[in-house]
């Protein structure tokens, strides 16, 4: 990997812990500020500006939390698994750090999705919880996150925790579609996808834009949280490195 210097220099420079630590630190406000603005805008647009749904009335407004969180719960898993694959194949510590940092964030988004969906389900479906396909697969996704985190915490040695949990994340990626498909076939009550569907979103613009802005805001939020957490992971991994001692002294 290191032989092809020309192509890989930038990559290795970015992947070097001290460099990344500095860059990530500088990036946090660039992610956090847009995240705050976008989420506030989406909340205002969703709660105040958008009209109520003709059937669900105001209860539908919970989608402005529920749907972005659901997207992010999947996106976090994909990021985690891709980072794990990179870390496993090229033995890049920073990729493992990103995977480790993404898991709790993704688990939180999954939990938010489930709780928000449950709050919506009681008035609309008439039940807090039902064994519907999407609900069940989201729940299993939460279990996968928890399993990943449990496996990490079972190792004393970080290198082994990194590599073992990376294998698990990849096994999970193969299984996520299978699990999703099997529960869909098993029992489906949840509505289809609103935005990503054949023939364009089934939603008027004034309802749709706060949703999309919210999704973007949540993505920025994830990026900001990931930066903070990866910096933490880098500190743990590099606690004996000389650049950290210099940083402390300065």
């Amino acid at each position: 990997m290191g032989k092809d210097v020309g192509t890989w220099t930038w990559f290795h420079k970015l992947a070097s812990p001290p460099h990344f630590y500095r860059i990530a630190g500088r990036m946090i406000p660039w992610f956090a500020v847009p995240a705050a603005i976008l989420i506030v805008a989406s909340t205002y647009g969703g709660l105040v500006m958008a009209p109520a749904d003709y059937q669900q009335k105001d209860a539908f407004r919970i989608i402005y939390v529920h749907v972005p969180a659901a997207w992010l719960s999947l996106m976090c898993y994909m990021t985690m698994a891709s980072a794990a694959a990179v870390g496993l194949i090229w033995r890049i510590k920073l990729a493992h750090a990103l995977a480790a940092a993404s898991a709790p964030i993704g688990a939180s988004f999954t939990l938010v999705t489930l709780v928000a969906g449950s709050l919506w389900g009681k008035p609309m479906w008439g039940t807090w919880w039902t064994w519907d396909a999407r609900l069940t697969s989201e729940l299993i996704l939460l279990f996968l996150y928890l399993g990943y985190m449990a496996l990490r915490s079972a190792f004393d040695d970080l290198t082994r925790a990194d590599r073992a949990s990376a294998v698990l994340a990849l096994v999970g990626v193969v299984n996520v579609p299978i699990i999703h498909f099997s529960v869909v076939w098993w029992n489906s009550l949840h509505q289809g996808s609103t935005v990503l569907r054949k023939g364009g979103p089934a939603m008027p613009a004034e309802m749709l834009w706060p949703l999309l802005v919210g999704a973007l805001g949540y993505t920025f939020l994830y990026a900001a949280l990931a930066c903070i957490r990866v910096r933490g992971e880098v500190l743990i991994r590099e606690r004996n490195a000389s650049w950290l001692k210099e940083l402390e002294a300065a």
């Binding site: 299993i140 928890l146 096994v171 099997s182 529960v183």
Partner: peptide, 12 residues
């Protein structure tokens, strides 16, 4: 904890 979520399709 690791195996049970992955085994759910088999159970179904």
């Amino acid at each position: 904890l690791l195996v049970l979520p992955l085994a759910m399709p088999v159970l179904i």
